[in-house]
Design a protein around this nucleic acid. Structure first.
Lengths: 191, 191
DNA sequence: CCTACCGATCGGTAGG
DNA sequence: CCTACCGATCGGTAGG
C-alpha cells in the first residue's frame, strides 16, 4: 500500500469532517494534520489559513444546495412535482455530503462578516426557491389557500435541515424511504 | 446606579448567552469575564471549570424541556389537546430561555461522555413524549392511520427545534401566532 | 511536507 | 474579585 501525498482537496474534505464533528473552534490545525497523517504546520503548504478551510467547505455547501434548487425549479409538471424535487434534491445533498452539509448548516456563523453575508444570501435564495414553489402550489390549488409561503418554507426547511442531526447511513430509512416520508409529511402539512 | 457583585447564577446565565452565540469552544473564560465586567480568572471563585458552566446550562435546558413534556402529558382531553400542549410548551421554553435552549440544542455534544449520555437520555425521553401522544392520536383517530409515531415525532421536533435558529422577539409572529402556525402545520402533517 | 520556531491566548491556580 | 502567574496549546511563519 502506497501512501500518497495529500492534495488540497483532501485537506478541505478532512476539514469538513472535523468541523462537522467537533465544530470549527473545536478543531485545531494540529487535529486536522494528524487526521491526514502530517503536522499542523504542514497544512500551510495547501491553505493559507484555518478560516480559508471553513470558507471552502461552507461555500461548497452553498453551491450544492443552490444547484439542487435550480434543478428543482426547472422541473416541468405540477408545483407538487417541483416541491418533491426540492425535497429529493435536499435529501441527496445532505446524505451524499453529510460533513459539508453539517458544516454549512452549523459553522457558517463562525465565518468573518464578509463571507457570512454571502452565505446568508445563498441561504435566503435557497429558501426563496421553496417559497416560490409553495406559492405556485397555493395559487394552482395543490396546497391550502390559507398557507403562508414564507412561514411554510421555513417550517419545511426546518424538517429537511434537521436531517443532518439524526440521519445515519445504516438507519432504517434509506434514501427513497426518506424522500417518501418527508414528502408525505410536508405535502400533508400544506394540503 | 450601583454595581452589584455577580452571583453564580449571573455567571451561568452569561455563559449561556455566549455559548449560544459563539459556541462553547468559541467562548473563552476571559470573554465570559469581560461580559460580566471582571477578569477571566475571577470566574473561578464561582465555578470550578469551564465544562462545569456548560453542564449547568445544558442541564437547565434538559430540565425545562422535561418539565414542559410532563405538563403536556398530564393534560386531560384529547390527544390533540396534549399535542398542542407539547407544542405550546416547547415554544415557551425556547422563546423564554433562548440562550439555554440554543446551548442545549447545539453545544451538548461538547460535553464529556458521561454528561452527554445523560443529555441524550433526556432528549430521548422528550422525544418519547411526542411519540406517545402521536401514537394516542393515531389509535384514537385524531391522526392518519399510516402515521409512524417514531418518524413523525422526529419531524415535528425538527420544526420545533429549528425555532432557535430563526425566532426573533421583534419578528412578525408573537408567541400565540407561533403556537397557532406550528400547531396547524404539525397537526395537518399528521391528519 | 518537516524542522524549528514565534507571539498570543488558552484554562486554570495560589495567595490575598 | 484582583494580582501575578503557570504550562499547554493555539494559528501561523521561515527556511529547507
Amino acid at each position: 500500500m502506497v501512501t500518497t501525498r495529500n492534495t488540497r482537496d483532501d485537506v478541505v474534505q478532512a476539514a469538513g469532517r472535523l468541523f462537522a464533528e467537533r465544530g470549527y473552534h473545536g478543531t485545531s490545525m494540529r487535529d486536522l494534520g494528524s487526521e491526514l497523517g502530517l503536522l499542523g504546520s504542514s497544512l500551510y503548504a495547501h491553505v493559507s489559513s484555518k478560516q480559508d478551510l471553513l470558507v471552502d467547505v461552507v461555500e461548497e455547501g452553498a453551491r450544492l444546495f443552490e444547484a439542487s434548487a435550480q434543478n428543482a425549479l426547472a422541473v416541468e409538471g405540477t408545483p407538487g412535482d417541483r416541491f418533491r424535487a426540492l425535497i429529493s434534491g435536499h435529501v441527496d445533498v445532505v446524505i451524499d455530503n453529510i460533513d459539508v452539509a453539517r458544516t454549512f448548516l452549523n459553522e457558517a456563523r463562525m465565518l468573518d462578516h464578509e463571507h457570512r453575508s454571502r452565505v446568508v444570501a445563498a441561504r435566503d435564495a435557497y429558501e426563496g426557491a421553496f417559497r416560490t414553489v409553495i406559492a405556485q402550489g397555493v395559487s394552482e390549488g395543490y396546497f391550502r389557500e390559507d398557507i403562508d409561503p414564507k412561514t411554510s418554507s421555513i417550517f419545511v426547511l426546518s424538517v429537511l435541515n434537521a436531517l443532518e442531526r439524526w440521519y445515519r447511513p445504516d438507519g432504517p430509512l434509506d434514501r427513497d424511504a426518506l424522500v417518501d416520508e418527508l414528502s408525505m409529511f410536508a405535502a400533508s402539512a400544506l394540503s
